[in-house]
Amino acid sequence: MIAGLVAFITIILIGLFVVEQKGERISSSFKLDLSVFKGKFLLFFIVMLVFTLGNSSDAFLILRARSVGVSESTIPIIIAMFNLFYALLSVPSGVLSDKIGRVNVIRLGWIIYAVTYLGFALAKLPWHIWVLYAIYGVYYSTTEGVAKSLVAHIVDDSNRGTAFGLYNASMGLLALPASFIAGYLWDKVSPAAPFYFGALCSIMAVVLITLFKIEKS
């Protein structure tokens, strides 16, 4: 109920105070232009597919927390702590990306992700989960907004909306097989296996984004 009320307030604020700058209208007809799949955007898209394949649903983090003895009543508090770290560090991460480059910050975030997932794989005690969720918030702060900023940076203005649509749609679609793989590994191998796989995919993405030299100077 509270979340719905907040969402309603944002609609009012947007309607009253947000004014979009009108650009030149090119065409009134809808046309999906896949020519955006080229150059640096295509390379970044491939890297993101590799990373996302190991980025299963965060529900597996909750399952892992329960498997090492974290109580159900404590999990919402841990998630709130994660969101606090994410919120507090998002702006500094954005500032850092302006100073050292978006790719460098994303690379840092993926390394943190790999370390965090290795931690979840090896976790034995409830306090381990507290620490790992805090570090996981750091990962989110370095990748969520910065990755979208990179997309805007490496595509032309005329294709930016299409690029964002394809990027978000593809990442969303790939979340299904990523979670299926994680679930299969959890059931057939061990609860630690999905996190080893996620860490491996993250390291592979770090190597690829380094080799591809994606960001414009």
Rank of each mutant, 00 (worst) to 15 (best):
Val115Gln: 09
Ser67Leu: 02
Leu173Lys: 12
Gln21Ala: 15
Asn168Lys: 12
Ser141Val: 07
Arg160His: 14
His128Lys: 01
Leu185Val: 06
Ala134Arg: 05
Lys188Glu: 06
Gly119Gln: 12
Arg107Pro: 05
Gly39Ser: 09
Asn104Pro: 05
Leu32Tyr: 06
Val207Pro: 02
Leu49Ala: 11
Pro92Gly: 02
Lys99Tyr: 15
Phe8Trp: 09
Leu42Met: 09
Glu72Cys: 01
Arg102Ser: 13
Gly23Pro: 06
Glu144Ala: 12
Ser93Pro: 12
Leu122Trp: 03
Leu5Gln: 10
Asp58Leu: 09
Ile106Asp: 05
Thr210Gln: 11
Trp127Ser: 08
Phe85Arg: 00
Phe41Met: 15
Val50Ser: 03
Arg107Ile: 12
Ala178Pro: 03
Ile12Asp: 01
Thr116Gln: 05
Tyr140Gly: 08
Phe8Glu: 14
Arg102Ala: 10
Gly161Trp: 05
Met204Tyr: 02
Ser35Cys: 04
Asp187Ile: 13
Ala169Leu: 13
Leu132Gly: 01
Ile77Gly: 04
Gly161Arg: 06
Leu211Gln: 09
Ser149Leu: 07
Ser73Trp: 06
Ile209Lys: 08
Ile46Gly: 04
Ser179Tyr: 04
Ala192Trp: 01
Glu20Tyr: 11
Tyr167Ile: 12
Ser93Asn: 09
Ile79Glu: 07
Ile203Cys: 02
Ser158Tyr: 07
Ile112Tyr: 00
Gly94Tyr: 11
Leu32Ile: 10
Phe197Gln: 03
